[in-house]
């Protein structure tokens, strides 16, 4: 298990746990972040910018600090 942040560009993983506070957790759920879902890291912005991930048919960008809260496993 490791944070989403550590995923390599182009790799897939499965969401294992989400440790966000409630309002953020709800937003993540609404965007499709759910335990057991497959997630792919499409790209990272330069200068340590946001991550571009894909869950199902939804593309989402989020900062590394938020990605840190999402635990993934292979």
């Amino acid at each position: 298990m490791k944070p989403l942040n550590d995923l390599n560009t182009g790799d897939y993983a499965t969401i294992h746990a989400i440790d966000a506070e409630q309002s953020l957790h709800q937003r993540l759920l609404a965007l499709g972040f759910r335990v057991g879902k497959k997630i792919e890291l499409i790209r990272r912005a330069s200068f340590n910018g946001p991550l571009h991930v894909r869950i199902g048919s939804t593309d989402v960008i989020l900062r590394a600090s938020e990605a840190q809260l999402i635990q993934i496993s292979h």
Binding site: R27, L28, D59, V60, I61, R63
Partner: peptide, 9 residues
Amino acid sequence: EPFILELPP
């Protein structure tokens, strides 16, 4: 503020 945003097609 957390930053999460949808990227539509």
